[in-house]
Lab assay of single mutants.
Amino acid sequence: EEKRQVKQVAKEKLLEQSPNSKVQVRRVQKQGNTIRVELELRTNGKKENYTVEVERQGNTWTVKRITRT
């Protein structure tokens, strides 16, 4: 359940930055209360990979860091 929520948060964050792209989740890793989500962003056939680190704060998820990989 929490992985599902985190995927959603990570996707939304990337789509905010580039709204007309397609996002696909590649991998989800958990480390303590930080969850790392690896995503693939496609814009006009151009692929970019991103890693989004999401942290739990109380009962909400906040995006800590977005890295292009």
Score class of each variant (00 low, 15 high):
Q29E: 13
I35D: 00
E48D: 06
L41K: 03
R56H: 06
R42Q: 11
R65L: 11
T62V: 14
A10F: 02
V52F: 02
K3P: 04
T43R: 07
P19R: 04
K3A: 15
Q29Y: 15
G58D: 10
Q5W: 06
T67V: 12
T69H: 15
V63P: 05
T43F: 13
E55T: 09
T43I: 12
R68S: 05
V23F: 02
T62D: 06
T60N: 15
T43K: 10
L41S: 04
Q8D: 09
R68A: 08
T60L: 09
W61G: 02
N44H: 10
R68V: 07
I66M: 05
I66R: 00
Q5H: 09
W61V: 12
T43G: 10
K13N: 03
N49P: 02
P19N: 03
A10R: 01
K11A: 10
R42L: 14
L15P: 01
P19Q: 04
E16Q: 09
N33M: 09
V9H: 05
E16H: 05
T67Q: 09
R42A: 08
K30E: 09
K22G: 05
K22L: 14
N49D: 07
T34Y: 10
N49W: 14
E1M: 05
Q29K: 08
V54A: 02
K46V: 13
V28C: 06
R56V: 06
V6T: 04
T67D: 07
Q29I: 14
K30M: 15
P19C: 05
V25K: 01
N20H: 11
V37F: 02
T34Q: 08
K3H: 14
K46Y: 12
R27A: 09
G58C: 05
R36L: 15
V54P: 00
Q17V: 14
R36W: 15
I35E: 01
V28K: 01
I66K: 01
I66S: 01
V23E: 01
N33E: 08
E53H: 06
V37D: 00
S18C: 10
G58Q: 05
E55S: 08
Q17C: 10
A10G: 03
E1Y: 02
E1I: 02
Q57I: 15
G45N: 08
K64S: 10
R56L: 12
W61S: 04
V6D: 02
N20E: 07
I66T: 05
K64N: 05
N44D: 11
T67C: 08
V9D: 02
W61F: 08
V54F: 13
E55V: 13
G45V: 03
N59R: 06
E40Y: 08
K30W: 15
E53C: 06
T67H: 09
S18A: 13
N44W: 06
T34S: 08
V54Q: 00
V63K: 00
Q17S: 09
K3R: 12
Q31L: 14
T34W: 08
T51E: 10
N49Y: 15
K3Y: 15
V25T: 03
Q57R: 10
Q5G: 09
K30D: 10
Q17M: 15
A10W: 01
R56W: 15
V37T: 00
T67N: 05
R56Y: 11
G58S: 04
Q24M: 13
V63A: 03
I66L: 04
V63Y: 01
N59Y: 07
E1Q: 09
T62L: 14
T43C: 05
Q24L: 14
G45I: 03
Q24V: 15
L15T: 04
S21G: 12
K11P: 02
V6M: 07
G45D: 09
K46N: 11
E16C: 06
K7Y: 06
E48S: 06
L15N: 03
Q57C: 08
N20G: 13
V9P: 02
Q24E: 10
V28E: 01
T34I: 12
W61I: 14
I66F: 03
K47T: 13
R26F: 06
T43D: 07
T67G: 03
N20L: 06
T69F: 05
G58P: 01
Y50L: 04
R56A: 06
L14F: 04
Q31R: 11
K22M: 11
L41V: 14
T67A: 08
V9M: 10
Q17E: 07
E1L: 04
N44Q: 06
R4C: 08
L41I: 11
W61D: 03
K30H: 13
K7D: 05
E12N: 07
G45S: 10
N49C: 09
L39T: 02
K13Y: 12
T51D: 04
T60A: 12
R56C: 08
N49R: 13
K30A: 14
K64F: 06
E40S: 08
W61L: 12
N33R: 08
V28F: 09
P19E: 03
V9G: 01
N33L: 08
R65S: 15
G58Y: 04
E40N: 03
V54E: 00
E55A: 06
Q29W: 14
R56P: 04
A10C: 07
V52S: 00
Q31T: 14
N33C: 05
R65W: 08
K47V: 13
R68F: 06
N59H: 08
N59P: 14
E48A: 07
R65T: 14
E16K: 06
T69A: 10
K22T: 14
Q31Y: 14
R36P: 00
R26I: 15
T69D: 10
S21M: 04
E55Q: 09
T69S: 10
L41M: 14
S18D: 05
N49A: 09
R4W: 09
K30R: 12
E53S: 05
R36E: 06
N44L: 08
R27P: 01
Q31K: 11
T69E: 12
N20I: 05
R65K: 14
L41H: 02
Q17R: 12
Q57P: 01
V54D: 00
E1H: 08
S21P: 02
R4I: 07
R27T: 06
V52Q: 00
V52N: 00
R68C: 06
R36D: 02
T60Q: 15
V9T: 05
R27D: 05
E38H: 13
T62C: 07
T51P: 00
P19L: 03
K47E: 05
R4A: 12
E2Y: 02
S21Q: 02
I35R: 01
A10V: 10
G45E: 07
N44C: 07
T60G: 13
V25G: 01
V23H: 01
L39H: 00
K47P: 07
T69V: 12
T67E: 10
T34A: 08
G32I: 02
L14P: 01
E53I: 14
E48Y: 11
V28N: 01
E2Q: 11
K64W: 03
T51C: 08
V28M: 13
V37I: 10
T43N: 12
V54K: 00
N33I: 05
Q31V: 14
G32A: 05
E38A: 08
T62H: 14
S21I: 04
T62P: 03
R56N: 03
E38C: 07
K22S: 12
Q5A: 11
R26C: 07
V23A: 08
E53G: 01
K13W: 06
V25L: 03
V9I: 15
S18V: 11
R36Q: 09
V63T: 02
R36M: 14
E48H: 06
N33W: 04
R26S: 07
L15E: 05
K22A: 10
Q8Y: 02
T60E: 15
